[in-house]
Amino acid sequence: MINKVVKTIDEALDGVISDMTFMVGGFGLSGIPENAIAALSKKDIFGLTCISNNAGVDDFGLGLLLQRKQIKKMISSYVGENAEFERQMLSGELEVDLIPQGSLAERCRAGGAGIPAFFTPAGYGTEVAEGKEVREYNGKPHILETALTADFAFVKAWKGDTAGNLIFKGTARNFNPLMAMAGKITVAEVEELVPAGELDPNQIHTPGIFVQRILQGEKYEKRIEQKTTRSRV
């Protein structure tokens, strides 16, 4: 068994420097690597390119890195929850590449799977298609999208073992397994780290081969963005 465990967040972030490209898992604030983001926001690293479906909110998630202007470029699909993001984007301080969510997911998956590019119908005829090769398959136009990889991928899982195998919970899975595949160095933080052998191999979502470092997360706030409930009648 290859042991992937790192003891501290500093060890987990070893090698992180300015101008790198990071992938950050999560959808909204669900399943984001809270500990890695918090630690990155305290480091003096700037000029980052971040690949993440969303950009957090003003004071949590990737919003923390945006506040300190650590991010030069965001590659995302939806950023509506963050006013500071919108301000930096409209003023031109922040470079933004908005891409369809399914294409973002598949581009990460492809990056990890050794597929350099693929054709998809999503975005054909829109701004997203500008400059991209168009080809017809089954009578329908498709655009060429290229794979994404990153220097570091920061992901968050529910449970993990010392071999780096991961199990996610609920909809906190989202982009995490795909980004884990696409990171040159994938840092997984988990709510519960167990010895290898304790997780049922049948139930593992992300095989440890995709994870270079695994860390027991110190604490999780797990903020809810839109608390929506129904009344008991």
Partner: peptide, 25 residues
């Protein structure tokens, strides 16, 4: 509410019998 169970609008949700969870790809 479960912070690990939301819809695409980031609202908290529940699942029904027979529900399934999966990654974005």
């Amino acid at each position: 509410e479960d912070p690990d169970l939301i819809n695409a609008g980031k609202q908290t949700i529940t699942t029904l019998d027979g529900a399934v969870l999966f990654d974005s790809a």
